[in-house]
Design a protein around this nucleic acid. Sequence first.
DNA 1: TCATCTTTATATTTTCTTTATAATCTCTTG
DNA 2: CAAGAGATTATAAAGAAAATATAAAGATGA
Lengths: 225, 225
Amino acid sequence: MEKILIIEDNDEINKLLREMLETTGYEVKSAFSGPEGFLYFDQENYSLVLLDLMLPGMSGEEVLKKIREKSTVPVIVISAKNEIESKLDLLENGADDYITKPFDVREVRARIELQLKKHGSAAGNGNKIVFEELVLDKENNTLFANDAAIPLTKIEFSIMELLMKHPNKIYSKQELYELAWEDHYIGEDKTVNVHISNMRKKISEHTKGEYIDTVWGIGVRLKKA
Amino acid sequence: MEKILIIEDNDEINKLLREMLETTGYEVKSAFSGPEGFLYFDQENYSLVLLDLMLPGMSGEEVLKKIREKSTVPVIVISAKNEIESKLDLLENGADDYITKPFDVREVRARIELQLKKHGSAAGNGNKIVFEELVLDKENNTLFANDAAIPLTKIEFSIMELLMKHPNKIYSKQELYELAWEDHYIGEDKTVNVHISNMRKKISEHTKGEYIDTVWGIGVRLKKA
DNA sequence: TCATCTTTATATTTTCTTTATAATCTCTTG
DNA sequence: CAAGAGATTATAAAGAAAATATAAAGATGA
């Protein structure tokens, strides 16, 4: 099912959109401030984001910018007529469409469906984890780096899944071993090292920066280049 | 250091409170909607919560109720005079104190300090230690000085952790050696000196004052510049 | 057999310790 | 109170040790 994120601080409008979308058959998450919205966005994969411009905590423009640093998910901006007119450059700054208040819910629905179709419904649904240039696809045991498919073996996938689920968290080799192998650690970090090394080699053929970062004496983590 | 959570959707008021509290020496997290606030609350341990009543997404009353299902953390409600008068029963519903808008920041501070003292400041919290400009993050083995990340090695981290856990306490080199190395002291203070020196160098690139202070003939301690 | 995983062996990198020398402080003494 | 000896600490740089990287050979299992 397609998941849609609504970031809108006005309770009534938020609720209105939410009910319309849920009736239509989407799964909906509501956020009521800029930071809250971005937080949800960062935690899960959404098929589309509805974004108000006037938000407490962080403006819609900022939210859009931060989303665009990470993802190409369709974003539809919603805002008052006068706000949007001065900000038509939003479309250049990463928004895919915009809707002015007051709006007709049917129009909103139509534009959402258009965007979803346009974006090929292929994008971020269910079982994919995204981090910067990397997309881990659970269905195929495959890692995509800038759309280049990198096949991973079972253990490689387990390790990568852990790293990508919690980027920036440092995993000791022991943790990786126990979690990826589901076995007890017996002082064998060498094997882990080999897998890491192999993955680095594969990944770096398709990316600019390095992603698997060694923290000497502690472990490894996923980190932006 | 005490961490305080502000849940207030008005950007200006949020900022005002935040700046006042940070100046006073608290670590502050700002939320701008009800759900966002509760989410933060659920993720970390805070010593105190400042809660507005009129919030998008979830009312202050609801937030308070959900907080009380989980915690006895002191909550100070902030709201407009007329709102609060009709809701004096808040104090019965879990709030520890209330402040009416417009407020004097000094009064807010006084009430916060009162609540913290009352509550014994006991709350065992997460994995960051803060001292002045410095934040030691256990997750990343990293020291932040004014938000600049300073990577520490394993031993450096151990030493810094000790110093930051008990600022102003003087550690002899022997103590540092035995605690950081988990080994017995064999008359070698030179190594400790080198590590201290290296850390000072790294830190001073990002801070104004010196933090690691030598007490001649006794040892070293963490001390504000 | 084939692909994957593990082990082995060696190279590389980073960190830790030692060494050597300079700078700083304390305390004595005139 | 100033000067200087002796002790303590600071720092740079070299050497030793530890941790990790990688290639390639061997083991395992469908």
